[in-house]
Amino acid sequence: MIIEKTFNKWILVFLFLIPVLGFIFEEPYYITLTTKVVILGIAGIGLNLALGYCGLISFGHAAFFGLGGYVTGILSFHALNSELMFSWPFVSSGSSDMLVIWPIVILSSAFLALIIGLLSLRTTGVYFIMITLAFAQMLYFFAISWPNYGGEDGLSIYMRNSLPMINTMDPLNFYFICLCWLLTVIFISAKLINSSFGMAFQAIKQNEERVKSVGIETFKVKLLVFVISGTITGLAGSLYTDLNRFISPSVLNWQMSGEIMVFVILGGIARLYGPLVGAAFFIVLEQTLGSYTENWQFWLGLILILEILYVRTGILSLFEKKLKYEK
């Protein structure tokens, strides 16, 4: 564990160094790439709370990621076109201020997670995996066939949403905004995991019946974890829209849910930094393989399969094992 902790500190050092280096050597592309890693890492950390720590295998987290993305896209679309969004119960023409968008994204993702959680948590096992998938697919098809916001073609926003006094269009500034969110999310997760509530949801993963018999209402605990998890992933979706200045139904697709899941498992489930490492590994692999061969997905699939068959517990576990052998 000590090695994993040192490794985690190095990750943070790297996260501060890489974009600065990119800035010095004038390679803004690497800043954008690291921003992407950070954002997808946040999405994975959200899923990890439900999937890794509480054993709720959600195959539908793209729903929250996409909702966060679409709420952001739609709000700023109206604000940039000065078009009325709705006139009841109050008049609104959207907003392009992140300080307004974030709370709305957080509230709406939490609400969606509450609804999906209330309905899905009645089922367990494979049925839970599939019903969460079904809800995400519902939103996906809705986004495709709803013509007002681009339908299948997606929605472009011309300007990144703004923050007071900060030029968000500057890649480095935007990167640090995302990094702040990452640190916040890691901090919140760490606090949660070590709280008594965290003990409860981790115990549910091991044996729900026993937790029930102690007098804890496990349904409420699971629901709350699911809501927090969905909210964090929703926030990541919002940042992702701002990064690309574009949102399309593909972020709601089941492959997105699969990818977020890959980040979590690749890094090592129920490890705080796991999803971040997983996302970094996935994206670096995608980039390097992509530069060598057109058929990079083939090799990516192969590496993933080998990882599952032989490493089994994620990349971070490699750093843990070393310690055991050294002893």
């Binding site: 699969g258 899941m261 890959v262 498992i265 997905q297 699939g301 993933l304 399969i305």
Partner: peptide, 10 residues
């Protein structure tokens, strides 16, 4: 889920 997801890619 993950292994068969990877198998799809492959």
């Amino acid at each position: 889920v993950l292994a068969t997801f990877a198998l799809i890619l492959l």
